[in-house]
Design a protein around this nucleic acid. Structure first.
Lengths: 378, 378
DNA sequence: CTGAAAGCGCTTACAG
DNA sequence: CTGAAAGCGCTTACAG
């Protein structure tokens, strides 16, 4: 932020091109208690049930009954309490309620990056299920950093979320064992938990990749490249395994220079793609390991002299409108999120822990749009 | 979820194609207290500071000092407390802490739809700022429903979030006045608050749309269509105003059949586009009011016999790789989120409420890629 | 350096 | 139908 935003009467543009217009209310228009409120102590002197009780001339418990819609209050008493609530602007403090009740009606979701288009629909699906169960959703991005994942997960446990949906960045989740034992529901999505036994919801990464690569082989390709994410990431490893299986099924020996695993930043991926597309025996087709890789490889191929076939893992928007359309192995991100969240509430609702951990695998779908059906061009 | 998941030893596919494999741990392997833990009462018998104190043979306050890293504890006492913490698997209950301290170190973000690619980067930016201030982020989607926005906002206030970043669905936010007065920080993003005076961070919707339409006019178009969102949405109204201003600046009278406002579902947008592209005097260019509209119109135009120029509000992924590339008025979603969140913490940190509401407007950027530079074809 | 008491704002368990 | 007391798990304010 700027240290000294413009305060002139006429709107002025600051050096970032932002236009800043002072609000229409002067400080004098504000309620006198605002400054005190803003100091942040005691929620800014918010009225409590005790205040409501005093004003309505009833006991604390009666206010609690009215606020929670419990029976056993005469209409007249109820009216008086409601009036006091209105007059004071009372809103129940759910953090106090939570302390007493033991359940917070909130769940956490830890994912890699909220800005990744794959996680938007997943996150929304988790939110919808949470909403249906009356729970709020706390979101956190691990940025693919195991330390940050752990920090976030434990912070959410300290807030006493009822459950946690985790897309793991790390590969050792023993640090969560005490939390699970203490009753925090836990479901892992997209990748399995490391070194603990817990519910996990996955796409069929192996099968999807194998089918995608087999599709390229069926269209005559033999020199097929694979560009994927860091091998320590489960999905990346599984998809590579699918690639190798398809090649082996077809009796095609794999040259290791056709394979590139690593960070998915555009620069690294571009170099990897250009490398396997050059030399005396370039690949005639590429299988890309996720949406970010696919997007970069599309850019590289669009500038490439020869047509090169492409199948990508994950669907991408507008894939059908490119020339050629992009053939993909699509996974259903929303279904992953929904299934995981439902599983979480199954754990939470089944009082008695009748829910042994399961591994649920969702199918992928090969969507043919053109790029995966191109014949090999030497 | 299934009522009766398969329990066979071999993996089986259920009718949705999901493969379910029972976990490797049998119930007997679980700690004996697990069933009780899962009933959800009392956070599953979690150890408290009192338990730690008893085990370490110290007072409650000493445990509190160690847990919070406060000074005034001998190394030996500290060690004994740490051992008890480890042995018991103690984790401080932040909801109790919050009740005493008055600040929850959490903020809320209410947006339209987490699954919309525009909100992913915005949400992530808010999260990063929150993280830098040690706060967690609670996310909620209003689904463009004012009632749901209000329900969410008030639920978050009941949880006593320290502040709220709101992308408004409704146009009357007086219901938030008591909360603001009680000290909840509040910033509106993307659209202004309705009927209350509050901080707001916007893109220059009017100027961006005007520039985009002027760009089409500069390339020779006179019959230019506008397809936008529902007119009650501020951004839609502003962008339409920009369209009209550009047309008026160029002395071009606007035929009302060139304008279509409404829901942004593909079906409605497709019909609107096809309508203005047909008849004796069809439009030769279209300005689309947001990313969802743009995507649908691209599909319509790709099947259209004549080339039609297109400029869209909001950038979209792969826009540069389409034929032609899609010219857009880009706004910086991450900057909107970051600016709003920084503003929120400015309110929170300025103890004394020295922060009068402001309206901050971020510039847009015209990105030329081909579709907006097509000449008119009658 | 250490800890007992009071209190944050609710709900629970109980008594009238 | 109504309410006083105790307690959820911490922190605050204070006394030793």
């Amino acid at each position: 932020m700027d240290d000294s935003p413009p305060r002139a009467d006429a709107p002025a543009d600051d050096r970032n091109g932002r236009r800043i217009v002072p609000g229409t209310a002067s400080r004098a228009d504000r309620p006198a208690d605002r400054p005190a409120a803003r100091t942040g102590r005691r929620y800014g002197n918010r009225p409590t049930m005790k205040d409501v009780a005093a004003r309505a001339g009833v006991g604390l418990k009666t206010v609690s009954r009215v606020v929670n819609g419990e029976p056993g209050v005469t209409p007249d008493t109820e009216r008086r309490v409601q009036e006091a609530i209105q007059a004071l602007g009372f809103r129940r403090n759910d953090s106090a309620r939570v302390l007493r009740k033991g359940r917070t009606a909130s769940i956490g979701l830890i994912l890699e990056d909220l800005a990744d288009p794959f996680y938007g629909p997943l996150s929304r699906a988790v939110e919808e299920v949470a909403r249906a169960h009356g729970a709020l959703l706390i979101n956190g991005s691990s940025a693919e950093d195991p330390a940050r994942e752990q920090e976030l997960a434990l912070a959410l446990c300290a807030r006493r979320v009822d459950g946690l949906v985790v897309i793991p960045a790390g590969d050792d989740h023993r640090y969560l064992e005490p939390e699970i034992r203490a009753g925090v529901a836990m479901v892992f999505v997209d990748r399995p938990a490391g070194r603990i036994d817990a519910d996990v919801v996955l796409s069929d990464n192996f099968g999807g990749a194998r089918d995608g690569v087999a599709h390229l082989i069926a269209h005559g390709h033999r020199r097929i490249g694979f560009i994927g994410d860091m091998p320590r990431i489960h999905t990346a490893a599984e998809r590579l395994r699918g690639y190798r299986a398809a090649m082996e099924d077809a009796g095609i020996p794999v040259a290791e220079k056709w394979i590139s695993l690593g960070a998915t930043d555009p620069e690294r991926v571009r170099r990897a793609a250009e490398e396997m597309l050059s030399g005396p025996e370039p690949v005639t087709a590429v299988f890309t390991g996720n949406n970010r890789v696919t997007v970069t490889v599309i850019r590289v191929l669009s500038r490439h002299p020869r047509p090169v076939a492409l199948v990508g893992f994950d669907d991408i928007e507008l894939a059908d409108l490119l020339q050629p359309g992009v053939t993909v192995v699509a996974q259903d991100a929303a279904a992953l999120g929904r299934t995981a969240a439902e599983r979480l509430f199954l754990q939470l609702d089944g009082d008695g822990a009748q829910v042994p951990p399961e591994r649920i695998e969702l199918p992928t779908r090969l969507v043919m749009r053109g790029s995966g059906e191109l014949p090999p061009v030497q």
